[in-house]
């Protein structure tokens, strides 16, 4: 794998073109562009219903300069399975050239992946298609107007888990989809964040060098749903990582590696929660316990991810308490 140079990346064509009609400040197109930048071969995309699909393909326009298919919400993985199966079949039959290399990607939001698309994702991972599924996780059904999903963080105020007089936002914790994908025994699973483009692109390049099913979960801030500013997607993704809410790690052929340890940059979770309007109610005095619980959930998850890393790298262990200076 060649070293990643920003200058070289900037020369690559935009396969998701400008004027794609996603909201100003949306994290999803940044994620998509970084993923596509990392791939040299031709790419075919299957896109689940959601913001990314709806905004980018308003007929008679399309923002995609590559072959792209959307069929429904819950089936991006099943749809790309069919595309990949046809590629394998035609290649085996000599109907397309043997040296024609194509990479197959599926993109879905957290609603289309953690929830309604989980079965199709699981099936495609288990069958072993040569593809990568990328979930851009913005933590709710943003396209339909900010409804809670199983990726929505604990306590978040959404239109179906509103903070009211009795209930204070989402009562449940998040589902750990990355670990569910990992449980399929696939050769590559990773979490990434668009603020750390070098890490994200390295992971995609590594994934593309591996044959078989791959899964990446990438945080994608949504200023509409998170009730934040349009210019803070990158700052908030960085904070998500530095608070250990969104650990950057990969598991390649069973070897788990934390690819970024915040160390002295580590921040308490309140610093990520505070700028987001969806967590405003957590800062009421009577909800102090929720902030404490949120921090506990984050710490528990970080310890667990670090535990996987330490088991894989007994010589280079990480102390999960490191950097916790508050």
């Amino acid at each position: 794998m060649a070293a990643i140079k920003l200058k070289e990346l900037s020369k690559k064509p935009d396969l998701l073109t400008g004027g794609h009609r996603m909201c100003a400040g949306c994290g999803a197109p940044i994620v998509v562009r970084q993923v596509l930048m990392a791939i040299d071969e031709p790419v075919i995309i299957s896109n689940a219903t959601g913001c990314l699909e709806v905004a980018t393909t308003i007929y008679p326009y399309t923002a995609w300069k590559l072959p792209w298919i959307h069929s429904a919400f819950e089936n991006a993985a099943a749809t790309i399975s069919g595309v990949e199966a046809m590629y394998q079949s035609l290649k085996r039959q000599g109907k397309i050239p043997a040296d024609q290399k194509i990479k197959f990607l599926a993109f879905g939001g957290d609603g289309g992946t953690y929830d309604i698309g989980l079965q199709a994702l699981s099936g495609a991972l288990e069958r072993g298609h040569d593809f990568m599924y990328v979930c851009y996780d913005n933590g709710a059904y943003m396209n339909t107007g900010i409804q809670r999903s199983s990726a929505t963080p604990f306590g978040a105020d959404t239109t179906t888990s509103p903070a009211g007089k009795v209930l204070q936002g989402k009562t449940q914790k998040r589902k750990d989809l990355t670990r569910i994908a990992l449980a399929h025994g696939v050769p590559f699973v990773a979490q990434a964040s668009p603020h750390n483009w070098k890490d994200l692109i390295t992971k995609v390049q590594k994934a593309m060098s591996i044959e078989g099913p791959k899964f990446m979960n990438i945080i994608a801030p949504c200023n509409r749903g998170w009730r934040t500013q349009t210019n803070d997607a990158i700052a908030l993704s960085k904070l998500a990582v530095d608070t250990c809410f969104w650990p950057l790690y990969e598991v390649v052929n069973g070897v788990a590696t934390v690819t970024y340890n915040p160390k002295k940059n580590r921040r308490p979770i309140v610093e990520w929660l505070k700028p987001q309007g969806r967590f405003k109610h957590l800062f009421k005095p009577e909800n102090e316990w929720m902030l404490a619980k949120f921090q506990e959930l984050v710490d528990e998850n970080w310890r667990s991810v670090v535990g996987m890393h330490n088991a894989s790298h007994p010589g280079e262990t990480i102390d999960p308490e490191e950097g916790k200076s508050w």
């Binding site: 069919g82 199966a85 035609l90």
Partner: peptide
Amino acid sequence: VESEHSAMSACIGAAAAGG
């Protein structure tokens, strides 16, 4: 596939792929 919904979804992807 793991369901009929995915069966038809895979058929759609495969047919759109060109076969």
